[in-house]
């Protein structure tokens, strides 16, 4: 079997390199400010808030912690810490250099993170609001699509776009196409125009097409976002108070498998099978 580098999926707020988490109950602000040199592998730079798996592992961790550790948080605002850019989506150099397996599993993981964001509103009364304060392209707009509400800054230049088909010959595959028509009920012909127009859509047209929920000029953007967040928080039944802390898993890997406190995995390399035992004590 070829040797592969194991990817560590655990993270915690002390080790975040790409996100800032700020809590001011009932609101949490999740700010994306990707460290360009903090990618999972060498050979690409995560410019313009583009992301790879390392960035998404942290986001996944944030989603879990907000749910379990912060019952006082009723609404989560995701925004960008960069000037003029919200998020440029998955890093293209990373995708171009990755094996097929890695691309497939990267997409599966990022899809699951976005599903978990949607699940937070559906089952935990913790809704997510995207405050798009700069260009949101591809996976950047798809991240917003996973939120319950999208607010776009109206400054004559900031756009939302899905440029994958025209520029990259692939799909907005992190839920983008599906959520446009299934979740946001964007008319299919407009969705087709949107997904084939690399320059994207801005301002009132983005509202008219259903791509975003509202727009606000730069001067009143923060106030508008705060008001929308408060209105969502008012409708949440999360109780406040103290949460529980998600401790690091007690994980013991070995050449023959991996053991946790209640789950043990044993590899049978000859059979290509992993036996997973769940123990109820």
């Amino acid at each position: 079997m070829p040797e592969v580098d194991l990817i560590a999926f655990e993270s915690d707020p002390r080790s975040y390199r790409h996100w800032q988490l700020e809590i001011a109950a009932p609101m949490a602000t999740v700010t994306m400010a990707v460290d360009a040199s903090g990618g999972l592998r060498d050979g690409y730079e995560l410019k313009l808030n583009s992301y790879d798996l390392a960035v998404d592992i942290e986001l996944y961790d944030i989603v879990q912690r907000l749910r379990f550790e912060h019952p006082e948080v009723k609404v989560v605002v995701v925004t960008s810490g960069l000037d003029k850019v919200f998020c440029a989506g998955a890093n293209i150099q990373m995708l171009a250099a990755s094996s097929h397996d890695h691309k497939v599993n990267f997409c599966k993981f990022t899809n699951e993170t976005r599903n978990a964001i949607e699940d937070a509103a559906a089952t935990s009364a913790q809704s997510w609001l995207a405050a798009i304060n700069g260009t949101a392209a591809g996976g950047g707009y798809e991240l917003a699509l996973a939120c319950d509400e999208i607010i776009l800054v109206d400054d004559r230049s900031t756009t939302v776009s899905l440029p994958e088909v025209p520029l990259l010959g692939v799909l907005p595959g992190t839920g983008g196409l599906t959520r446009l028509v299934d979740k946001r009920h964007v008319r299919r012909d407009l969705a087709d125009v949107f997904a084939t127009r690399s320059e994207g859509v801005r301002g009132q047209q983005a509202v008219d097409w259903g791509l975003v929920d509202s727009i606000a000029p730069k001067t009143t953007f923060a106030d508008h976002v705060a008001a929308r967040a408060q209105s969502r928080a008012d409708r949440s039944d999360r109780p406040g108070g103290r949460g529980i802390s998600l401790e690091r898993l007690d994980r013991h890997p070995s050449s023959g498998g991996v053991r946790y406190s209640t789950v043990e995995v044993t590899y049978d390399r000859e059979l290509g099978a992993a036996a997973i035992v769940v123990r109820a004590r």
Binding site: Y267, L271, G272, A273, A274, A275, I276, V277, V278, R279, A280, R281
Partner: peptide
């Protein structure tokens, strides 16, 4: 590992 064998141990 193409197959995951799911087992449990404990008191139902």
């Amino acid at each position: 590992m193409g197959t995951w064998i799911l087992r449990t141990e404990g008191d139902p």
